[in-house]
Design a protein around this nucleic acid. Structure first.
Lengths: 263, 263
DNA sequence: TCTTGTGAAGGGGTTCACAGCC
DNA sequence: GGCTGTGAACCCCTTCACAAGA
């Protein structure tokens, strides 16, 4: 999950759980697919399967939005699409800027589902002067100097950061100062933002490491026939806790963080 | 968060909570930065700040790994780096294949933090014959026909899917059949996988929609001086639940899903 | 004195199971 | 009969607050 919610804790408008909010886009996608196939209604069971969740959870989620179903029948697809879209704020237009037009930034700019659902790429911004003016996904890349003006002129409230890690915080600061209040961060850094600004992060490296953890465990389980006695002894609570691992070479300090280079 | 854990629910080896696992990479990154600056020890307070969490949570997380700190002092940076790396399985080599070498796939292939932490890109695979043989990030793009052989030859257990949505499930099936047991999915689709295979997904569109939800709410809150009485009436429980929104135009059925095109 | 490690309390989310309604 | 909507139980995670220990 991402960060989210540095927001006002009190008066939390209507209590729709964060976990539910995170699943609404999933339901919306499944419903849109049904809508395209002109399916008129759908049961919680079917929709849940399409969205990859269980039906009880889906019904509970929908119950937070209101009683939009019909007992004995199911949910009206078009109506639900509309209600969820409205709840997510997708019935309005959200201008977005993408900062950092490397491979990743370009990929995001070209992303189809972007324009479709209420989001509109207002501008592409990069610090590299050599990129300025070059067309990416039908839009000219503009220089970072223009960032503040672009945000103001287009009333941008959502910014996407796809710069290297080292530049992310500064870009973030400038976006926020210019009026952006929601940030999607692809750079592998923790961003500091003032209250009222939401940050969500997408981090390839973290996802891979989580997979590796489970993968490693699977490899271990393959060979526990019975009780899994003394696998991987784990030096927990051995005499000297704070002692170095002695002669155990680590790969050594490496840059780690650099995200995708801007061209 | 991503999907994770289609795994064996019983005998969950040593009980290290999923939420903790998801934060270990964050700690590891912060610790690596400290290590590079040759900082010998760090307190839970400092490290927590660097990782963007609170210190109680961090201490609790570490307590699942063992007693690796020293009271009154803090944690030994190098030692912790090692312990977390080991716990995450990063002391071994994880060959990874990336399928779908469009902008996104190329971005992932070029990603620096990739190679650094135990992960090695074993091969780049794309269905487009025109791409075959072209060099990306120092590796030749190979054709999908070779997928099974590549996975087998390199003992690949982790696959990254960066194809358009339409191709994702088939690619997934082939990867799994070939022996891959962990998948990182960038395509905006729900992937069906057999038990024992972990899937995590990264979905730009979903993240943006979650941001939009909060953004919309902020916009509403700006103008509630007192009790926030009748803002956004919400037609909940009105007479006709299953009725269409009548004359309310939706953007209309659009493709939504297409991810980044493979070149 | 300072900081870790952890029992206990508290909060959220998921799941169950069934009442309510078509 | 079938499916939604939801109280209640359960479980996981976070946070608190302090005992333990260097």
């Amino acid at each position: 999950m991402a960060t989210g919610r540095t927001h006002r804790p009190a008066t939390r408008s209507r209590g729709i759980p964060e976990a539910t909010v995170a699943r609404l886009p999933l339901y919306l996608r499944a419903l849109t697919a049904l809508s395209e196939r002109s399916v008129p209604t759908v049961s919680s069971e079917e929709l849940a399967a399409a969205a990859g969740v269980n039906s009880a959870k889906l019904r509970k989620d929908f119950s937070y939005l209101g009683s939009y179903g019909t007992r004995g029948v199911g949910y009206d697809v078009e109506y639900l699409v509309y209600q969820i879209s409205r709840e997510l704020g997708l019935t309005q237009d959200w201008p977005v800027v993408i900062v950092g037009i490397g491979n990743l930034g370009a990929a995001l700019a070209n992303y189809g589902g972007f324009a479709s659902r209420g989001f509109r790429v207002a501008a592409l911004i990069d610090a590299d002067p050599a990129l300025s003016g070059r067309m990416v996904a039908g839009l000219p890349v503009r220089h970072t100097d223009e960032l503040e003006a672009i945000v103001a002129d287009n009333q941008v409230s959502i910014g996407v950061i796809a710069t290297p890690a080292g530049a992310a915080q500064e870009v973030c600061d400038r976006l926020v100062a210019a009026g952006v209040t929601s940030i999607l961060n692809f750079a592998p850094t923790v961003l500091a933002v003032p209250d009222g600004v939401d940050v969500r992060k997408v981090d390839l490296s973290i996802e891979l490491q989580i997979l590796a953890f489970h993968e490693q465990r699977k490899a271990g389980e393959e060979l526990d026939g019975a009780v899994a006695a003394t696998r991987r002894p784990l030096p927990k609570a051995d005499g000297a806790p704070a002692a170095r691992p002695a002669g155990d070479e680590r790969p050594g300090p490496d840059g780690d963080l650099p995200a995708v280079m801007p061209a």
